[in-house]
């Protein structure tokens, strides 16, 4: 009964809990294309929900390509630092000239440019193993 009521109100599991469209908001604040969305947002979504992409397949398939495709801490540090730069810039919008170091942060980091290639390799290898 409780479940039926929840369904009627559209409250069942897996549904969005806000009306937020993150991609629209990213475009609004200056992200020019979908790359960042596709390879950060979708990827982290996969890990939040522990879907097949996020399992450590290298532990069960004897394939060196799999065991070498994990994320490096440096890649995650890079994205984290980028986000902190944006946070500080947002603070500076309100408290003008108090938080001007966001450019320093962005200049100091180097995001892992191979993130897309790595993920494609992982996905392709995974698909291949499932078929065989």
């Amino acid at each position: 009964m409780k479940l039926a009521r929840a369904k009627a109100r559209g409250l069942c599991g897996g549904e969005e809990w806000t009306d937020t469209n993150l991609l629209d908001r990213m475009k609004d604040v200056g992200f020019k294309d979908r790359d960042y969305f596709d390879y950060c947002i979708k990827l982290t979504y996969a890990y939040s929900h522990i879907n097949a992409t996020s399992l450590i397949w290298g532990e069960v398939y004897d394939d060196p390509r799999l065991s070498n495709q994990k994320f490096t801490p440096e890649a995650i540090y890079g994205v984290t630092a980028q986000m902190l730069g944006h946070v500080i810039k947002a603070l500076n919008c309100k408290f003008t000239d108090h938080f001007t170091e966001y450019n320093d942060i962005w200049n100091q980091i180097k995001v892992d440019k191979d993130i897309r290639t790595k993920m494609e390799k992982v996905k392709n290898t995974f698909d291949k193993n499932i078929v065989t």
Binding site: R25, T44, Y47, V79
Partner: peptide, 25 residues
């Protein structure tokens, strides 16, 4: 060394950051 497991928290940080930027923009 628990790198992959940091990704859900990274997503939280990304979403939080986008919201901050969107509001102040």
């Amino acid at each position: 060394g628990i790198t992959d497991e940091a990704l859900p928290i990274l997503r939280s940080l990304i979403e939080h950051t986008i919201n901050m930027c969107w509001i102040t923009n």
